[in-house]
Amino acid sequence: MPINKNAYLRYKAIDLRLRSQYRSLPDMRDLIDACEKAIDYRPSIETIQKDIMVMRQDPPKGFAAPIKYCRRNYVYEYTDPDYTIDNIGLNDLDIDGIKIALELINSIGTSRVSQQFAHSMEKVLSVYKEKFSNPINKKKIIQTDQIPLYRGIEHFDLFFNACTEELPISVIHYSYSKMSFNAIVIHPRILKEFENRWYLIGYSEDHSCIRLFGFDRLYDPVLLKRKFIKVNQEIEELYLKDVYGVYPIKDEKKQSIRIKASSLVTNYLMAYPIHASQKVENRTEYGKGEITYELIPSHELIRLFRSYGNEIEVIEPKWMSTHFFK
């Protein structure tokens, strides 16, 4: 049976009080006081009596705690002075739960999370492999995209801290298109992942607008002690809400995008919608459909449409149809 967090905190408080060598053996009031400190409210006598009962039960329900009540002095004590609930291992259900979670995290790979988290996970995983390894079931069950470490991901923690603490950064940017370097100051707001690549969205002092920067193009970021510039949240949200991908087409606004799709693509997009605004209309007898989006057109959207070849036809906007699909 799972133990709720407050109950576990009470068990810990009772355990700690019973093990205290520098204080007299606790009576019921002492145990209630100890629990009150741990959970910030005063539990009732009945709650503590139930807790003691649970603690006395054998695992997996309890902790097999050797708690004895002395009727003469009205105090509680451990009959085994070396006992502590900390020595009780995880039960089978706990271990199964951890195994599943760790397998999932291990599959996702540490390249997509912060170094700090990766380090913590490595510690847990090392214990997991040592203590809970199950030689019978070594087959990998969960398979996610595994991408090798790429340039810039090592700055994840710094960028994350800069966003949360609202600190501008000085950074060197290399533009692939211009083939040139620039030193810029960014006021970072959001970290975004798209197709396994990470991007930093923030206000660029040099460009005087919100910009998006691929981690791979940013070198040597330094946090700055400088007034943080915030911009309209709606502009930031454009990058999150109304764009498929990360690179909106310059000067284009949010608009209706309508495609005609074969039954194959219609079925596929119905199963895996690419945006919350997606609507499928006018389905024909043979499964073809018209699909609409309310989006700011992006390079990634056009790339996706093109990947379907003749299976789709862009109806609206006309310029997209003319420029990219004719």
């Binding site: 000085s170 370097f181 030193a183």
Partner: peptide, 26 residues
């Protein structure tokens, strides 16, 4: 005591071309 940073500092003496580009001094 504190690290001071100059981005693209002004270079009066000039230099032909942009290679290498002096980006930052701290």
């Amino acid at each position: 005591q504190k690290r001071m940073i100059w981005q693209k500092p002004e270079i009066d003496g000039g230099r032909i071309g942009n290679n290498p580009l002096l980006l930052r001094i701290s």
